[in-house]
Design a protein around this nucleic acid. Sequence first.
RNA 1: GCCGUGGUGGCGGAAUUGGCAGACGCAGCGGACUUAAAAUCCGCUGGUCAGAGAUGACCGUACGGGUUCAAGUCCCGUCCUCGGCACCA
Length: 808
Amino acid sequence: MTAYTPKQIEPKWQSYWEEHHSHEVNDHSKRPKYYCLDMFPYPSGSGLHVGHWRGYVLSDAWSRYKKLQGYEVLHPMGWDAFGLPAENDAIKKGIHPSIGTARNIANFKKQLQQMGAMFDWSREINTSSPEYYQFTQWIFVQLFKMGLAYRKEMPINWCPSCKTGLANEEVVDGGCERCGSPVTKKNMNQWMLRITNYADRLLDDLDKLQWPDKVKKMQANWIGKSVGAHVRFSLVGADEEIEVFTTRPDTLYGATYMVLAPEHPLVAKITTADARDAVNDYVSQTLHKSALARQIVDKTKTGVFTGAYAINPATKKPIPVWIADYVLLDYGTGAIMAVPAHDERDFDFAKAFSLPIVQVIRPNSHVQGELQNLHEAYIGEGVLMNSGALDGLTIQEAKKAVIAFLEERKKGSGATTYKLRDWVFARQRYWGEPIPVVHCEHCGIVPVPEDELPVLLPDVERYEPTGTGESPLAAIESFVHTTCPTCGGPARRETDTMPQWAGSCWYFLRFADPRNDKEPFAKDKVNHWLPVDMYIGGVEHAVLHLLYARFFTKALYDRGVIGFDEPFIHLFNQGMMTLDGAKMSKSKGNVVSPEELIEKYGTDTLRIYELFVGPPEIDAEWNPRAIDGVHRFLSRTYRLVEENVQHAPHTGTLLRNKLRHRFLQQVTERLESFRFNTVVSAFMEFTGAMADYSDPIDRETLETLTLCLAPFAPHLAEECWQLLGHNDSVFMALWPTVDPTMLVDDEIEIVLQVNGKIRDRMVINVSSTQEEVIAVALSRDSLSPFLAGRTIQKQVYVQGKLVNFVIR
RNA sequence: GCCGUGGUGGCGGAAUUGGCAGACGCAGCGGACUUAAAAUCCGCUGGUCAGAGAUGACCGUACGGGUUCAAGUCCCGUCCUCGGCACCA
């Protein structure tokens, strides 16, 4: 008898796979394609921990299962290698970010290879290599030509610590997503992507995706579609109009005042002389408040009257125009009509400043009249009142009527707005893709011709962000000074770089054809492999990466570059691995590294333990001891094959065949529904049950066990497969099929209940009828103490499960 | 505040459609093997009460109600956990 020695088995099979190019995928295979993708990592300096492993093990087990099912499986890996840590390291140590990045990649790769995953390393990509980013730049040029990339001067989110502009999606609780510093506003002229053009499609196409509902909802909320109307209010004694957006045009008669955002351009024009000092004070106060203070911490209403009046187009009455910081400049039109009776915020404001409150919606339960002592806004269903000709209409009817009224008078129209903003796409940092355009005095903004790409990221002396709103590239004369591709005259290069998300917006496409140096990918290859069938990664990318990647995919589809408009069919979010209840991170000092575990137990044990800790989508606490049980299980399994293989009959007894098919059925079913933790339980039960019978264990049982184990413990499975006399890799074989006739038993045990309490059990023949079962049950001595002298009111029989006698 | 998720033994968790709650594993206890220990193997292991004992009764899936012959599972209400959004008109 030889013991289970992963230290010998695992390197042996890893070399075998490498020598036989087992994991290299074939573009022209006759097998159906399957694309299983991990969210590729940023190669940080701290390396991988057991939390990172979780998703990778999951996707590898799934990929290997799909391979055994007969698919040609693309399961690639690469590096999201542009990003701030490498740059910060460069600032600190003065070494080029590419050097640290290369070192980290080497380390990550070594660690991932230890996992024994079936990554096709011949397709490895690195977003910071010119071979890759030339095409990130190419895509930018396409977006520019489609009118989706544009420059705009506007106040954007600015991180004073990272010294760069940020996208809306990168601001979390008023702080920088990366470093947590409070974000301020900075007026900047920079690049934007018109993601809002795609708002409706990004929202509607969520229906096509088999993603967790949670992620779909998060994206839908982020897009934030609201349907309503634009309404223009005339000003008393002035030519300008104030345009507002409202979702409640039906409440127009109840609009008793208006509010502009303090930064609204009309504020300076309409403010009367009397109000000017107070307004100026308030505006400057607002500008100094951080986003955090304004939106999150303090919601008490403040504001000042501008002295101006507007005319309510419905009532024709003048209403005062205020400014207040509860109205945001960058949503809707930056101005509102306030209907205090039917909006909580307006109600609070009206109370605070004693503004009139006019009820225009009556709850259906109130036949007539106003609600007495309105002490909160009424936002429920109802019918119109105090609204002239609209009185008695439902809210829905009134919305239509008011929009028609406004359109007729040219005072407004139906309108839809979104919370989604255009994407601030420029970063004033070094370690990213240079935005491939030049600024020419004569021709304006000119994209770099496609055949001149890449615009190489030049070496610089100093990597520090300048903080002036310019990237470090601006200091390199030789980079900045160039000639205009159109007129040949002197021109300046764009010095901003792309955000970290740029490379990951299309890397899943590049894996289809990663060595193509002429184009991002050949059309036939990308249309063959894509879309991704299964995408596995953390939920932290629910809006950022996943929304951006969908946007790029749709834009490239519109450009005719690819033939599909959604990149990821299935999405699975694995849970975090925690230690002491906290997410593992180097800064918290609670990381568990896979190295020593592999040293002690072997890779296969760690792989299975990662799956066994709990449901894959739920966070799991690392338990350093529980891994022993998994290791014991693998040792037992190895021993089972090793001890029995010599004397195993080809086929087993009926009992063993039934056991085997039931096991196979369980594993397949649980695997299909991603219940990996219970798959492992099924293995443990099966190997345990095998010892319960004295007849010899047969080859079919041992082969099924080995095949089923292969996705999870591939090294051990290969070894067992070889012990079973096969010369090929186990992954050349096919997943066994369940014989349904083996799943049914002739006899089954059912439970006997009296008044829902279990009193006995008995074995019946499967073909027994209800009458037969009940008759037998009634004749049982065990039930007579409970039934004697009682009237049976009801008999419940659940086929093959139980009998319940209901007595009085 | 709004939207979403979850709450089951000492611990991680199982129970897919309402039908034997606690599979499987960890930890613990007892035993076998051993001079001994480790490793390995076998058995027990939700709680309370009664019994010398086999065993039996009752309670038990966050809490309070309800539906049902039957509820961890369905309905109503409450509390707590975690996540997302956060004055979005």
